[in-house]
Design a protein around this nucleic acid. Structure first.
Lengths: 341, 341
DNA sequence: TTGTAAGCGTTATCAA
DNA sequence: TTGATAACGCTTACAA
């Protein structure tokens, strides 16, 4: 049989005080005499007492547990968000309960547990939060904070990069650099972040008299590779592409690299997310940096308000501007191995 | 005031049955009549009843909560382990409590919370688990499972790649490819994984009459960049290097790339971890693949045994063989842009 | 098959 | 400053 933890009652008995005094001591309640405190601490030490937080949760209706629902962590952008967010939550005395969800089935299995542990809030960093998934989380009855989604729903608070203006900025930049034939290599067709990035890009391009080639696939390296093969197959391939995220951009470049296909020279590429790999020497990829710190700040503020029992808005759709980071890939263009021979 | 969840008592009242019947219904206890079950489910639906797991934890001394303690998630290898592990734990009906720890202070803050929530076990994917940190986790009184550490301590179960033989294999491979001047670019000098990889490599090299140049720094891109500058500075630089992990290898390559320094041709490189980026076109990096699935299997078996209240060994140090993945970087060597002109 | 009642380890209220 | 005592929402004998 498993060894039981010592309880505050055990400590109280050994210290010769009441259980309430032990409780007060450990919560830092001022109304404890120094002598009592000493006796308690000594007994606690002897018994290796670890205060149990669970009864407190039941009594106060507050767990300080925040669920973080993630999908694909192979994207370094999400790994970074997860790391920072966890750190910040710990600083505000919350713990993260991680839930990995790669299908709606997985969500079915996980949601009852999240409610069972009485998480105070759910944060979704799922790249695609479908409407059904959002509903399921909202039914938990706790605030749902979601990154890079935008839906107007009671109980849903979204925080997104301002994708459309970023797309427009990329179009202007590529055109200013002298691009003639534009392309957009995107994520899943109806993914909201993808839609906004593409729309901004396409609209701005059209305003300048260009009609970009459009393509979509997964947000991933492989998705980029597949699209590159399709988009750059023709006789007069694009000489500039905006990619839905950096992994797509890098996957596309690698595919072109391998294909040995004749390409426009220079070929200019811009990605999105500004993952660390974008700065790596062979890519030197221009990208839109999402301001994760500000996005996380917003999320924490919403949580704070909720903990303070402040009046919460029914829903919220916050936009955070991205910042364009210009590197070689969109200026002098991609250097293929040996391309300058 | 925060809205309270419905309790099983509320459901019982509405359904006109006893609270125990509600409890039995939700635990799938067979001793409930179909009529009772129906009434209960109906009432539960109406009240949006979500069973609370916390009292159960208190009663059964089992939370099915596993703490995952992570350090640097910017390493894609750890991100992948985290993702897989979380998924597998969910499949065995456990939830992950994530703890981000980047200093011993952070550990002090986090440990009392982990015990407070009564986690059943702690899994550490910290790249360096110092002895002090290990002790702190062990004092929680729950099993501690740690990756790529090796310490013999009661309550500590370690699972590591078998680093030394991997190092030896790399030495043999590079020598067989025709390398003349070997180098090892490593992680922190006393990190156990680093020590083993280096030792295996150096011993085998010496057995073949080679004396590698040694260097160390962080396990990171920047660490690799810094080491490359030092190691390849001399007049007769190494023509083959084994790197403590793939990020070091890639950082080193990028630094050399930028430096424009005259280098051995071919220059052969091998990394460790086989992160997805190792396969990217400009690098084509040979690497040692850690068999994470098997490592995770071991960890889950330990957990399973513990849940089954099986007799646990005092400690355990498991080794999992790595597998060498050979790519261009160690055969024809690294191609610098334009190097084949 | 159902209900009663005693815990689990805290917090919070009220007297002392 | 202390100690009783009633919750919190379940699980689990035990009785009916």
């Amino acid at each position: 049989m498993r060894k039981r933890y010592a309880s505050s009652t055990d400590v109280a008995r050994l210290a010769g005080v009441s259980q309430s005094t032990v409780s007060r001591t450990f919560r830092g309640d001022s109304r404890v005499s120094p002598e009592a405190r000493n006796k308690v601490m000594e007994a606690a030490q002897k018994l290796e007492y670890r205060p149990n937080l669970l009864p407190r949760i039941m009594l106060t209706q507050q767990s300080r547990l925040v669920a973080l629902v993630v999908g694909k962590m192979h994207n370094p952008f999400y790994a970074r968000v997860l790391e920072r967010f966890t750190k910040r939550l710990q600083e505000m005395k919350c713990q993260v309960m991680l839930a990995h969800v790669d299908s709606d089935d997985a969500l079915d299995a996980v949601v009852p547990r999240l409610s069972g542990y009485r998480v105070d809030a759910v944060v979704s960093a799922l790249s695609v939060l479908t409407e059904a998934a959002a509903d399921q989380l909202i039914e938990l009855g706790v605030p749902v904070i979601s990154f890079n989604t935008h839906m107007r729903k009671k109980g849903l608070y979204t925080i997104s990069s301002d994708n459309a203006p970023a797309g427009r900025e990329v179009a202007r930049h590529l055109i200013a650099q002298g691009a003639q034939r534009l392309a957009y290599l995107g994520g899943p067709e109806f993914n909201p972040a993808n839609v906004d990035r593409r729309t901004g890009f396409v609209e701005e391009a059209r305003a300048h008299g260009f009609e970009p080639v459009l393509s979509n696939d997964e947000f991933s390296f492989e998705g980029g590779a597949r699209q590159a093969v399709r988009v750059f197959a023709g006789p007069n391939p694009p000489d500039a592409a905006f990619c839905g995220d950096d992994l797509i951009a890098i996957g596309a470049l690698d595919a072109l690299w391998h294909s040995g296909r004749p390409l426009a020279d220079p070929l200019r590429i811009v990605g999105f997310d500004d993952i660390p790999q974008a700065a790596w020497a062979p890519y030197q990829l221009s990208s839109i940096q999402q301001d994760e710190e500000v996005m996380i700040d917003h999320a924490l503020r919403i949580l704070d308000d909720w903990y303070a029992e402040a009046e919460m808005p029914e829903y919220l759709n916050l936009l955070v501007p991205g910042k364009m980071v210009i590197r070689r890939s969109s200026v002098s263009g991609i250097q293929f191995p040996g391309s300058h021979c």
